[in-house]
Design a protein around this nucleic acid. Sequence first.
DNA 1: GATATGACCAAAGAACTAAATTAGTCAATG
DNA 2: CATTGACTAATTTAGTTCTTTGGTCATATC
Lengths: 190, 190
Amino acid sequence: MAPDRRKMIVAAATKSFSLFGYKATTMDQVAKLANVGKGTIYTFFKNKEELFEEIISSLVREMIVEADSVIQPKLPFTENVHRALYRLLEFRSQHQLMIKLVQEEAEMGTLAVSEMLQHVENEIIAYLKQKIETAISKGAIPAANTEITSFLLLKMYIALVSDWERNHAPLSSEQIAEIMKVFLLQGLPT
Amino acid sequence: MAPDRRKMIVAAATKSFSLFGYKATTMDQVAKLANVGKGTIYTFFKNKEELFEEIISSLVREMIVEADSVIQPKLPFTENVHRALYRLLEFRSQHQLMIKLVQEEAEMGTLAVSEMLQHVENEIIAYLKQKIETAISKGAIPAANTEITSFLLLKMYIALVSDWERNHAPLSSEQIAEIMKVFLLQGLPT
DNA sequence: GATATGACCAAAGAACTAAATTAGTCAATG
DNA sequence: CATTGACTAATTTAGTTCTTTGGTCATATC
């Protein structure tokens, strides 16, 4: 009977953002959903955007857990990169909040949303970069500019998974894996 | 003293599109610039969009001439692909009409402009595809899915040239060439 | 009679405004 | 002293008028 108000607020906001998007979610709505006075929200968060940031941070942590869960140390490195990336993009295309935000950016161009999605992309690149660096230090793959490599990996993935489907039939997971393997296995860009 | 009205119209429209963009160009303006009655435009073109199409077609032809002009048969295939792609993107970033259209798409999302840019992209991919196919038939590079390869090549290029600069210092032409060479030289995606 | 023209029209869009909504504050409350 | 919701300044929406624009066509020109 002493509910954690902070958690209730975050839960309510997450639900509302997922359902209606960022702009269409009002603080009154969040307060009502969380069974909390509106003022209370502002004792935990400086403003709407900061509340949003906290939720996105959780989402990123969740994504990384997902990606890690799919990695199997015994598999070759390239296979694991593929698995992780595939899981990440699958996550992005299945998670309600992500779907809503991507949609909101496309059709309304909400600034705060664009910034958050860019942030998520950067987090994914940082994650990849770290994986690549440890693989290099273990001698699993040749040395390379890890920043460019992780950046390109993600861009290629997005191109193959999203952009490609604008004009062509979707590629199978196997085809994508094959393309990525070629790219990663051979000498990486220096 | 018998000016080719059609050419005057196209020239006027090209100038106006380059200067003000597609939406902000009015048919009255084009008519005035071309020293022609507005109705005359409609004896040559069904509507504004068709006039736009004609101009974009010329632009694409111009781009292909540019790309071809930079190819030297004696150089290795990968080097030529790099040169052609680099020239194409340079063209895109220097040509007034292209600059204006890209800008208009970004900040106003004009539908007709988006469609045209997509069309230009498809033309570039078709051009690359054809180059790759002849190279394969000559045994210069291993066989591959040319559609995916040309698609990916362009996407990678755009990512490296445009997207990368959003968060990093620009890459040198040499760096870009190196990355592309790795990708193209090794086995291509099947 | 073939071609060119610009006044004209319907439709789309801009500009303006009033009304409604909303993020954030703060004096009152328990 | 943590919580609240009525309050406010600022933004957004909705409704309306006024303007602009793509496209047509009757008239003028050669």
